[in-house]
Design a protein around this nucleic acid. Structure first.
Length: 224
DNA sequence: GACCAGGCACATC
DNA sequence: GATGTGCATGGT
């Protein structure tokens, strides 16, 4: 029953918003950097940080490995939590460097999805959502990304029990959708779009694309 | 000025 | 295992 419900939601969102062309980023490393920088942070601020990295010529695997952490912090300052995130970027680069002598993304590319996920989660600063964003958007693996918007949208439409954790929600999508990275990509992006435009905290949705489904049934019981 | 934004690690109970 | 807190900028 979830399969049909989930595809119905997808259809409504896609009809309203169309393709979202995610992840916004020109290269694999840019996607990974963005995934770390956007932790609990507005994407607009991340874009500024990424622009800084680009103009400094630092948005490459090699330069990110070389640049000192103080410089890196300064470049990513607009993204907030810049000291912590600089450390996290460095942690990722060090992990990458441990994978192959050249420190390229090739070894990751050759690793099976479940193992790669486990390995990413060993990097300090990469939690489930960041790992899954990297897996789906940088490596096109069939992994569903669960974020704040996912909790809020599903919660408000009565599709969650009260204590669903990250893994349970990920499993809900992965078990009930056809295993298609393109679909997972678009679905998560559409949920974010919906969350930004129609599912804000402490505000009832007006003109929500999912209105026909179960109009704010749980509002605000499942507030996130 | 308060609240929010595409989390995560760590301390404490 | 659950709950609380620090991390920080920039837009509304």
């Amino acid at each position: 029953m979830y399969s049909e419900k989930l595809m119905e939601i997808y259809g409504l969102l896609y009809d309203r918003y169309g393709p979202q062309h995610w992840w916004p980023g020109d290269s694999r490393i840019e996607i990974i950097v963005g995934a770390i920088l956007t932790q609990n942070t507005n994407w607009g601020n991340v874009e500024k940080a990424i622009a800084n990295l680009k103009s400094a010529g630092c948005l490459t695997v090699q330069r990110l490995g070389e640049v000192d952490i103080a410089t890196l912090s300064e470049l990513i300052r607009p993204a907030g939590y810049y000291n912590i995130k600089a450390r996290r970027l460095k942690n990722f680069m060090e992990w990458l460097n441990d994978q192959t002598p050249s420190g390229s993304l090739d070894a990751a590319e050759a690793t099976v999805t479940e193992l790669l996920r486990e390995q990413l989660l060993t990097v300090k600063g990469i939690g489930p959502e960041t790992a899954d964003s990297i897996l789906l958007y940088a490596f096109e693996r069939c992994v569903f990304v669960v974020d704040t918007y996912t909790y809020r949208v599903l919660g408000r439409h009565g599709l969650l029990d009260h204590d669903n954790d990250y893994e349970q929600i990920r499993d809900l999508f992965e078990s009930n959708l056809r295993r298609d990275a393109g679909l997972f990509n678009e679905y998560h992006a559409l949920l974010v779009r919906l969350g930004k435009e129609h599912c804000r905290p402490k505000a009832k949705c007006a003109g929500c694309p999912l209105e026909s489904l179960a109009p704010n049934a749980q509002w605000p019981a499942c507030e996130v």
